[in-house]
Write a protein that binds this DNA or RNA. Structure first.
Lengths: 279, 279
DNA sequence: CTAATAGTGTCTATTAGACAGTATGTT
DNA sequence: AACATACTGTCTAATAGACACTATTAG
């Protein structure tokens, strides 16, 4: 082995191909909230949480749906790569983005070795008026979960995608799960796993952080906010308890939401940091 | 653009070098618990939580300390790569291992573009009798943290390593922080960031999971367990509250710890799943 | 009036925090 | 006896869950 006298000498001589290199991608879970149909002039719209998928028009997995994603440039920061994809796919800038997990199974891409780092983005769908790319579509996410199986249905109004994940406790743990795809017809790559990973993170974080407000419009009623929580957590909440918990995260405005065939609701806004959030 | 009629045709023809490839490594935070010196025959040993570092004997960062890590093989799963390093560096198999975060700054390695996925491993140091590799050493971790600065001191008895991290709120968030290295003399790469990331994850998870028990011996007293919590959380806990919380996670044995110059303590063991954990 | 949501009051149950007290070993 | 930890009892404060009640609108 050759001896070097300085870091510089070493670097000059370094053969960066000593180990065979691989490709990396980033995949992004873009989550938002959609309104369901209004059944009745009095009733509130149901809320779904939803995810943006893209239809592949190329091999591999031609005509299957997948998460927005792309290759990481050789000089590009991982997070920048995620941001670039967000800008391209949905014309989105300056939004909530969080790294989720890195998937590194050697067979996850049929082309070659590709490691993928997934990110989760949260947006208010209403602010991005129609500018999503033409292959993209919003799917409502409906999840049934028990001890062992996670059953996910994605619905964009035209097409329904279903997949099933097997959840087993990891060895040496009582808290962590290993996920395996049991059934998946319509999603490319290992994206069912990525989606499940993101849903689980979102569910967790909504309880102890303020990330929901990234998916809310500037003004909202507490009822609407509660419906969003309920859609994500997939369970009913009690009104007084809910209001107690979020009371110090929001502030009243002097606006009201009227015209619903019932008592008008006060519009609130997020009391995060000062108002520089919205721009 | 060429048209393909099947996935197979496409794959046969695919040029895997369309995007310039990069190298990946895994770095592992191996956490454990160490006993401090006994001040007095009556007193309990202080507990520290500690981390395994390796002294680099090659460029880059020659003679600096770093996390155990290594390049990911072209056909190697990420997690397998972490396990391989654990086996090599500390002769460890079948232990708690959790993916933490993927660091992808393009300049984090002076040699070339290297993306690194970090893992956290938790072990009971006492079960791995002296078999760590010769360049490795356990460092006690002492952390001072306020709103803005995280001040970390690592101490292996011979050498003291210090670094400082600046913590700033990320845009569009009230919950997430961006970390920057303010001072770092002795650690290679961006490893101060990795360490801080791991400490923060460990602190969080110890409160709502059972991961501590991966760092405990089979039998322990509640006092010892409490000291471990206190070392990791960096604060004193109240005895009755602590005992209430962990009561249903542990079970009494008929063994006692005697000889401490004070009332003997009952030895407990982890009541996780059945006894197949330990082997 | 009615259906439907908005919003509040209050009782109860559970959990967390605090402190004081008793127990029991070694030197 | 004295020190140090082990362990428990109990009071209080804070939080979560449950239910019932009042308010207000469009049709």
């Amino acid at each position: 082995m050759k001896i070097y006298n300085s870091e510089e000498d070493f670097l000059k001589d370094y053969d960066s191909n000593r180990y065979e290199k691989l490709s990396m991608t980033t995949d992004i879970l873009i989550f938002s909230v959609s309104d369901g149909l209004q059944e009745n002039y009095r009733k509130l719209n149901k809320k779904y949480f939803s995810i943006l998928l893209v239809k592949r028009d190329n091999y591999p997995f031609k005509n299957k749906w997948c998460l927005p994603g792309g290759f990481v440039g050789i000089d590009e920061d991982l997070e920048d790569s995620a941001k670039r994809i967000l800008a391209k796919e949905a014309n989105l800038k300056n939004i909530y983005l969080e790294q989720l997990y890195t998937f590194g199974n050697p067979n996850r891409d049929p082309r070659m070795r590709v490691v993928s780092t997934s990110y989760m983005a949260l947006i208010d769908k209403n602010t991005l008026n129609q500018k999503i790319s033409k292959n993209a579509s919003w799917f409502n996410v409906i999840v049934f979960e028990d001890d062992k199986i996670i059953d996910v249905t994605l619905d964009n109004g035209n097409e329904i995608i279903k997949f099933k994940i097997l959840k087993t406790l990891q060895e040496k743990t009582t808290d962590r799960y290993k996920y395996e795809i049991l059934a998946n017809d319509s999603l490319a790559f290992d994206h069912p796993l990525v989606i499940v990973c993101g849903i689980s993170r979102l569910k967790n974080k909504i309880e102890y952080t303020n990330i929901v407000f990234n998916m809310m419009p500037e003004y909202f009623t507490l009822g609407e906010l509660q419906l969003v929580y309920e859609a994500i957590l997939n369970k009913k909440l009690l009104d007084p308890a809910f209001r107690r918990i979020i009371a110090n995260k929001v502030e009243k405005t002097n606006k009201m939401k009227i015209g619903g065939g019932h008592r008008p609701a006060i519009l609130y806004k997020y009391k995060g940091r000062d108002d520089n959030d919205k721009k």
